[in-house]
């Protein structure tokens, strides 16, 4: 009996140590990033990670706003990601409602078709989509970033999984009372599917916040740049000012970290429910 009490404790020390070392290795790049972002320009590239005689230059963060319109990039990114998230939530939840709560003929075949589009490489549709954007005169607009992303098969799939787990008895009694599909959708299903909606919302927001390929193709003028595109051009132009770049990088990943810390629980549940992606 004595063994069973000491064994886990000893194991726990080792385990904690191993886990801490591993997380340390994974976090090291971020530490270097933050430290470099507060170095004086003359000390960038020194072997010492910590700012030296010139002191900690917190003003680098203000200098970023002088060098590039960082606030504008951030605003564009957040604006696009928010719109996409809103639209995806509406289109996916309505489609998922149709696929789980209304028994229309041919429903399952159509759903299968939806699933099939999930395995289509995005690159196949990118080239024609760009031609469509040219014809709709949406190249170099933020609208052109939002519209093609406004519905995803993945979102429909994820919310369908969530809605299948809501017992049908809830809405059947409502439909006995003569409630329309629209009011069942708004008043019963949406509130019950809230965890699913939050999960999908976070996924969509973050992946669009990081989105790179499509904005890179679409955006031409600096005022329209989203953060990833702005950072890319800043890196090319900045040359030796690594400290400013690191300050910009730090500020750009901060929102992602905050969102993650706030919504961790939903995200992890969503990943385990819906497979991969995100």
């Amino acid at each position: 009996m004595g063994q069973t009490t000491t064994q886990p404790l000893k194991k726990s020390y080792v385990l904690n140590l191993v886990l801490a070392l591993m997380s340390m290795m994974l976090v090291l790049p971020f530490i270097w990033m933050v430290l470099t972002s507060v170095k004086h320009i003359t000390e960038v590239g020194d072997a010492s990670w910590v700012p030296g005689a010139a002191g900690w230059q917190w003003s680098n963060y203000l200098d970023v706003f002088q060098a590039i319109p960082f606030d504008l990039y951030m605003w564009n990114s957040v604006l696009v990601a928010s719109w996409v998230t809103l639209l995806v939530l509406v289109t996916s939840s309505m489609a998922a409602y149709s696929f789980t709560r209304i028994d229309w003929p041919g429903r399952d075949k159509v759903f299968f078709l939806y699933l099939a589009t999930m395995m289509l490489p995005g690159l196949v549709t990118m080239i024609p989509n760009f031609q469509i954007m040219i014809h709709l005169r949406l190249v170099d607009t933020l609208t052109g970033l939002v519209i093609p992303a406004a519905s995803t098969a993945f979102g429909t799939f994820l919310l369908r999984q969530f809605m299948l787990s809501i017992p049908r008895s809830y809405d059947e009694s409502a439909s006995m009372d003569g409630a329309s599909h629209w009011s069942i959708y708004c008043d019963i299903i949406l509130p019950l599917a809230r965890p699913g909606l939050i999960t999908l919302g976070i996924f969509t927001f973050i992946s669009n916040y990081h989105s790179f390929f499509w904005p890179l193709v679409m955006l031409r003028t600096q005022e329209k740049y989203t953060l990833p595109i702005g950072l890319l051009h800043f890196e090319t132009a900045a040359g030796e000012s690594t400290h400013l770049l690191m300050a910009a990088v730090t500020m750009s990943i901060l929102p992602a970290i905050v969102v993650f810390l706030l919504f961790q629980k939903f995200l992890i549940k969503g990943i385990q429910l819906g497979g991969v992606k995100g």
Binding site: F30, Y209, F212, P228, I229, L231, V249, I253
Partner: peptide, 12 residues
């Protein structure tokens, strides 16, 4: 964290 922040920022 490395996965969640992955994007152009961490590539740079």
């Amino acid at each position: 964290m490395p996965h969640f922040t992955a994007g152009v920022a961490t590539f740079l």
